[in-house]
């Protein structure tokens, strides 16, 4: 059984009140991914190397500026985990040869969008987990290829309109269950987070930091231009994703999945969908009840299943 220390983050007051990640980045106003990243960075700290696959966040470090206090490396979309392997190996060699003291060791962090994580980079990630690479993976999931104008990705939810799924029914496919795909590799840790649940997020990053091996995080990232909503709604939409049960907050450790926040009274998915332009065609010109019900049913089925397994656990 993995030893995990009691958390430092018990309530909002325990969260840092000043922030480590530099301001002045070119992320969009209201970016839910940046919101999650700055919270993550407060916990990880400056002794880190970020290995960043092409996507919105590669624009964080545009020469000669960087918001990071540690290092940053840019890789192609499919290969951030391979880049992380190289950096980890180099650090290990330096440590072993005593060319750097142990206190100068760094956490190797892969940072990619969902286009990379759910698609192009999945094979490299699988390989890294297979080799039990000691690294942290942060995927900010804006449910599409944000940087290039929100084309659909393996993370795009059913019925969402994207630049490449413009028809009256939106995206015909379904969001991949990356959490389960990752967990099936039995890495040290897998968790879903969201910037609008900062205490849950901080605890999970803290827990991941205390472990060794592949530690995998997916952060749902409300994206004003990609999802088509006013930037000020960013946090509200994240909260609705959790309250409606669309974005379950959970973690995998030691072969077991635990839900860290079970919405007591789930609100209808409609309340989440209707705030976003990418789902506007479900409500205008007429309400597409069939499609909304289909989305609702998927969410209900998910939570019914959770209920069954958690009640089994209690027995």
């Amino acid at each position: 059984m993995t030893e995990v220390k009691a958390t430092f983050y018990r309530r909002m007051k325990d969260l840092p009140s000043t922030h480590l990640l530099g301001t002045g980045t070119p992320m969009c106003s209201g970016c839910g991914g940046l919101e999650a990243l700055h919270q993550v960075y407060d916990v990880i700290g400056e002794k880190s190397v970020f290995v960043n696959a092409a996507g919105c966040m590669t624009l964080l470090s545009v020469y000669p500026f960087t918001p990071f206090r540690g290092s940053w490396l840019y890789t192609a979309m499919a290969s951030a985990p391979a880049g992380a392997q190289g950096v980890r190996d180099a650090l290990d060699i330096l440590l072993e040869k005593k060319r750097i003291p142990p206190e100068e060791n760094m956490e190797v962090v892969v940072l990619t969008g969902d286009g990379s994580a759910y698609g192009m980079g999945l094979s490299a990630t699988s390989g890294a987990m297979e080799r039990n690479l000691d690294f942290l993976y942060i995927c900010y999931d804006n449910e599409g290829y944000g940087n290039t104008g929100q084309q659909y990705s393996g993370a795009t939810p059913h019925a969402a309109k994207t630049a490449t799924s413009k028809g009256p029914l939106g995206f015909p496919g379904f969001k991949k269950d990356l959490f389960s795909i990752w967990a099936a590799h039995k890495p040290a840790y897998v968790a879903t987070v969201i910037g609008t649940e900062p205490v849950d997020l901080a605890r999970k990053i803290e827990k991941a930091r205390s472990l060794k091996g592949p530690r995998m995080i997916i952060a749902l990232a409300p994206c004003p231009p990609g999802w088509d909503f006013d930037p000020k709604e960013s946090v509200e939409i994240g909260k609705l994703a959790v309250k409606s049960g669309v974005w379950p907050l959970k973690e995998y450790i030691d072969g077991k999945v635990t839900h860290t926040k079970i919405p007591r009274q789930r609100i209808p998915v409609e309340d989440y969908l209707k705030h976003q332009g990418r789902f506007a065609h479900l409500f205008e010109p007429q309400c597409n009840d069939a499609l909304i019900n289909e989305i609702q049913k998927k969410v209900d089925d998910y939570w019914d299943e959770v209920q069954k397994t958690t009640s089994l656990d209690k027995e």
């Binding site: 480590l20 990640l21 530099g22 301001t23 002045g24 980045t25 070119p26 400056e46 964080l60 470090s61 000669p64 500026f65 960087t66 918001p67 990071f68 206090r69 540690g70």
Partner: peptide, 8 residues
């Protein structure tokens, strides 16, 4: 430099 993005 660390976090020099603040210059933007």
């Amino acid at each position: 430099a660390a976090a020099n993005s603040v210059q933007v």
